[in-house]
Amino acid sequence: MTESLTLYTNPMSRGRIARWMLEEVGCSYDTVLLDYGTTMKGADYLAINPMGKVPAIKHGDTVVTEAAAICAYLADAFPDAGLAPPPGNAKRGPYYRWLFFGAGPVEAAATAKSLGLLAPAERAANAGYGTFDDVLKTLETAASSASPYLCGEQFTAADVYLGAQIGWGMMFGTIEKRPAFEDYYARIAERPAAKRAADLDDALMAQVQPQPQAS
């Protein structure tokens, strides 16, 4: 695809996931830096994402929001990057499974834990993630595979998204620093694209306002 591609982001956000994915894809793109509470809630950006949140990408006339959706979209839009098993491949199922396990149970459970709002044991069946312990056990199973990546020998968009969740979780204390998590994240964080993305976002930190805190 030759359409222009723009990333709307803030380096203190999940936009780092989208940046990493873009660097893995290797396509050229522009960056629009947005601040919390001001440009992120401005009319121009709300026309792109009515949620007023980042990240978002615009590829030609196509707008994609939500970090997991951006990862999945870019993997399919740029198949030559090899970041998704092709349809019909036996690895396509595990690819979807772990990508959306990260976007669903892991994201929900980690957020609930950080806010002190985990479902009580007697109501766990009502929560999409079940119990936090079950989420961590399942996540550890994925990270502990004998294969280097979630889909065997192939690094995919699922590794970008779920790997970022593991890295952030360990950094902020919502995910325990278990050996399986540390080994897996250390392996994928050494990828050249991951390092480029981190350097680009770190360089933008001085240009943004901190996220406002609730009073």
Rank of each mutant, 00 (worst) to 15 (best):
Met1Pro: 14
Leu5Tyr: 03
Ser13Gln: 02
Arg14Met: 04
Gly15Asn: 04
Arg16Pro: 07
Ile17Ser: 00
Ala18Ile: 02
Glu23Lys: 02
Glu24Val: 00
Val32Ile: 13
Leu33Ile: 12
Leu33Tyr: 04
Gly37Met: 03
Gly37Ala: 04
Thr38Ile: 07
Thr39Cys: 03
Lys41Val: 12
Leu46Ala: 10
Ala47Phe: 05
Ala47Leu: 07
Ile48Leu: 12
Met51Lys: 14
Lys53Val: 07
Val54Glu: 07
Val54Ala: 13
Ile57Ser: 06
Gly60Asn: 12
Val63Ala: 05
Ala67Gly: 15
Ile70Asn: 10
Asp76Gln: 15
Ala77His: 08
Gly82Cys: 04
Gly88Phe: 00
Gly88Glu: 03
Asn89Asp: 15
Ala90Tyr: 01
Arg92Val: 13
Gly93Met: 09
Pro94Gln: 08
Tyr95His: 13
Tyr96Cys: 12
Gly104Thr: 09
Pro105Cys: 02
Pro105Ser: 14
Pro105Met: 01
Val106Gly: 06
Ala112Glu: 12
Lys113Ser: 12
Ser114Lys: 11
Gly116Phe: 03
Ala119Asp: 13
Pro120His: 05
Ala121Phe: 03
Glu122Asn: 12
Ala124Arg: 05
Ala124Asn: 10
Asn126Lys: 14
Ala127Tyr: 09
Ala127His: 08
Ala127Arg: 08
Gly128Glu: 13
Tyr129Val: 14
Gly130Lys: 11
Thr131Trp: 07
Asp133His: 05
Thr138Asn: 08
Thr138Ile: 08
Thr141Leu: 06
Ser144Met: 04
Ser147Asp: 15
Ser147Gln: 14
Pro148Glu: 11
Tyr149Trp: 12
Tyr149Ser: 09
Leu150Ala: 12
Gly152Gln: 07
Gln154Asp: 10
Gln154Met: 11
Phe155Trp: 04
Phe155Lys: 04
Thr156Asp: 06
Ala158His: 01
Val160Phe: 01
Leu162Asn: 07
Gly163Lys: 02
Gln165Trp: 02
Ile166Ser: 03
Gly167Tyr: 00
Thr174Val: 15
Thr174Ala: 10
Arg178Lys: 15
Pro179His: 04
Ala180Asp: 06
Phe181Ala: 13
Asp183Gly: 07
Tyr184Trp: 08
Ala186Arg: 13
Arg187Tyr: 07
Arg191Ser: 06
Ala193Asp: 06
Ala193Tyr: 00
Ala194His: 00
Ala194Val: 01
Ala197Asn: 03
Asp202Glu: 15
Ala203Asp: 10
Ala203Trp: 00
Ala206Leu: 01
Gln207Cys: 05
Val208Asp: 14
Gln213Ala: 14
Ala214Leu: 09
